[in-house]
Structures are given as structure tokens and as C-alpha cells.
Design a protein around this nucleic acid. Structure first.
Lengths: 218, 218
DNA sequence: CACTCGTAAGTTGCATACATCCGAGCGAAG
DNA sequence: CTTCGCTCGGATGTATGCAACTTACGAGTG
């Protein structure tokens, strides 16, 4: 049976809204009326309101007192800043993960990396949308292994940038291959216990992504 | 007359609770019952609940479904992580601020730095508590001038660490003098338009603070 | 005596009704 | 014709009542 239906209503609303925003179904600047959302989700205003509050904390929506909520509009500059922050923080998290990863952690990351290589391989089986979710899980797991709450909190409000999360479609073949190889190499570095190596690959990984997104080769 | 009373109830609850947590009146691990808080603040549960949700997003409280809210307990390691994140991000923000600060911005920062020097000077006029607020404003203004939303979002959930915000009392005379001098030097660097200089001072500034807090001299 | 199951108390989660506030549209005055 | 002010509509903000869940305690049984 479907277990997700048993979860709390406010959480469902939050997940549902986040998905619609990240997928682009709710475009930037869209007005989010509480009653409208409540009716569409089959809930009352209370959990919808709570979901909006939390999404606002994540930076996905903006709340204007007495004037309602709007989907945050991200600019090209915001996207660039996002990569700046990630390049500053994720390599550090990766380095920490090298010292703390257990055998089970490494196996899990290996699985993810391998699955991504298979899912992203050119051909009829290629599924770029599935790749987005796998990529998200890989990076999230890495942060989790690093076990540094402050780093996780700092990255939390940044990674959600809508454009970032659904953009494997804009990768050219070479960049995509590099990106997938990076994941595998990071796991290898972690397995070797070489934090500096892992961090260096992460720097490359983010730089590669940035080049794809912004077209900036500097 | 007191204008704060005219603000929204949920906002008042949020501000009040945050203050009590940061001041230590509500110690880490304290259980926060909705009805109890509502009665103490003279409100209903609804705005209290919303305030708790927002504070949870800030990382000050932890929400356990059906089990209530608790004040987040920060460990020594968390504090250390906080400085890691700040050292990674704030210098970058400072560098950006150098390119964007207007004359008015610089004057404002100058005022803050000068006031801090006066407020922190040894003697009968020294007020370490006032210094906490001034320091918060200085750093917040700097981030604001940098005008990089992603950086601001990343730092938002990190700076609130209770211990960090009320710890000028643990500075020895030398560290305090250095800290205050750093602010002035940062403004000077900004005025010179030298982002690298400003960023370097910020690195020193954070390292100095870290040494005071953790006693770690590495 | 230890373990398990059932029940009850107290909490949070959700829904609904009421209060408050913002903004648009219309009318009158300059 | 423009501008100011008022009123009305619709939204958000708050309060309260009911439902669901979690936990703790105690009775019953192996």
C-alpha cells in the first residue's frame, strides 16, 4: 500500500508544493493564494499555511504580510551565487566525509554513482529526469555523512534553486560524462581515505556544472 | 508610544522566543509546550505554532512530530563548524561588498566600527552587551551590501548560534582590541576598493573569534 | 518476577469561524 | 480632467474546537 498518504498533511502540502515549484509547474512570481491551494490539495488552510512558511524559510517562496505568497523569482546572478556558495562549502563537507564514511556509507554512494553512470549513459535507457533525483540524493548523502550540522544548514537554503535541480537536460555529452565520472571518483577518493583528493574532485564537479549552466568558462 | 505592540502577533512571539533562547533564558533542550507559551505570551496557539515553525527553520528549535518542540542543543563541535562556514563565506561576501559599497554604506559601516571602538574601550563606559548587537549589525550590513542572496541565505541559518551571539564576555583584552580594530580595517579596505584586503581582514577576524571561543590555536 | 497488552491522559495536528488589514474601484470636490 | 477619500470585496491573521497520535502507567498473564 502507499505509505506516503499516511504522513502529515502539512508535510504532504510542503512536498507537493516544492515539487510543483521545482518542476516549473508553478513559475517564478506566481501568486499562491491559501484558499486556492487548500482546495487544490484537498486540505484546509492551516497545513497549507504551515507549508508556505517552511518553503519561505527554504527560500522557494516569498511571504508578504497581508499580501500573500509568491514563488521566488531567481535570476541568472542568483544562480551564479549559488555555485559560489556550493564551491565554498561542498568540498569542505566532502573532505570531512572522507574521515567519517563507514563501509556501508561507501557502498551506498558506490551504488548511487554506479546507477547514475548507467542511467546517464547515452542510448535508449538514458533518463535525465531520474538523474536529477539520483544526483540530489548523492550530494545529500555526502553532506549527511560529513555530519556537520552548520554546513548542512548553510547549504540547505541554497541547493533548492529550481533551475539547478532540473538542468541535466542542458548538459552536453562531454560535461555529462565528466559529471558522472566525478561522482565515481569522489567515492574512490573517499574509499582511499584521501579527503584532499575527494575535495578537489568536488571542486571540479561544481566548476563543471557551473560552466554548463552559465556558459562562463573562466 | 510603543510601536512594537502593533505588529503581528506571530512576529512578536517569534522575536520574543528568539530573544529568550539567545539570552539563555530558555536553555538548550528545554521543552516548549504550545499552550504554555501561548499563555505566557498572552496569545493563542496558532501564532505560537507559526513562530516555532519559523524558529525551527532558523535552526534554533527542533520540531518532533506529535512530540513537541525543544530548544536546539549546540555542542562544542557545532560551534566549531559554525566558524568553518563563516570563514568560508564571509570573506567572499566582504570581497563582493568592496565592489558594491556606496559612499553612504561606507559611512554607515564607519559609524558602526567607531561606535564599537568606543563601546568596547576598556574603562567604565565599556558595554559588552551593547557590543553584541553592534557586531551583529556590522556583519549583517556587510552581507546586505554584498547583495548576494545565496550567500545571505547560507549564512542565515548559521550565525544565530546562541553561544556565538553573546560571547564578547569571554574575549580577553587583546582579542577584543584586535576584533574591534578588524572592523575598522575592513571599512578602510572597502574604502580603498581593495576586496582582497578586506577579505583577508575578515579571515583574520573570524580566526580571532574562533581562537577565543574554542581555545584552539591551530 | 518479567513481559506484554490495553487504556487513559495530555499533547500536537487539523479544520472551521471570526477579526483584521490591504487594495481596487467609484464618486465627489477642486 | 485630475486627485483625493471612502467604501466594499477579498485576502490574510487569529482564535477555538475537535481528531489523531504518542507516551506512560497499570493490570493481567506466562
Amino acid at each position: 500500500m502507499v505509505e506516503t498518504a499516511r504522513r502529515r498533511a502539512s508535510e504532504r502540502a510542503q512536498v507537493e508544493l516544492r515539487e510543483q515549484i521545482l518542476s516549473g509547474a508553478l513559475p517564478g512570481g506566481a501568486h499562491l493564494g491559501e484558499v486556492e491551494l487548500a482546495e487544490r490539495l484537498g486540505l484546509s488552510r492551516t497545513p497549507v499555511r504551515e507549508a508556505l512558511t517552511r518553503l519561505a524559510a527554504e527560500g522557494l517562496v516569498e511571504l508578504h504580510p497581508h499580501r500573500g505568497a509568491r514563488v521566488t523569482r531567481f535570476t541568472e546572478a542568483d544562480l551564479d551565487d549559488t555555485f559560489d556558495v556550493r564551491r565554498a562549502l561542498e568540498p569542505r563537507a566532502t573532505e570531512r566525509a572522507a574521515a567519517r564514511a563507514t563501509a556501508a556509507d561507501l557502498d551506498e554512494l558506490d551504488d548511487l554513482a554506479a546507477t547514475m553512470l548507467a542511467t546517464g549513459a547515452p542510448g535508449p535507457g538514458q533518463d535525465l529526469d531520474a538523474l536529477v533525483e539520483l544526483n540530489r540524493r548523492f550530494h545529500a548523502r555526502l553532506i549527511e555523512i560529513a555530519d556537520t550540522p552548520a554546513l548542512a544548514a548553510a547549504l540547505a537554503g541554497v541547493v533548492h534553486t529550481p533551475v539547478v535541480l532540473r538542468t541535466f537536460h542542458s548538459y552536453d555529452a562531454g560535461s555529462l560524462a565528466r559529471s558522472l565520472a566525478h561522482h565515481a571518483e569522489i567515492v574512490a577518493a573517499l574509499r582511499a581515505g584521501d579527503g584532499a583528493w575527494a575535495a578537489a574532485v568536488m571542486v571540479s564537479h561544481i566548476a563543471n556544472a557551473r560552466a554548463v549552466m552559465t556558459g562562463d568558462r573562466r
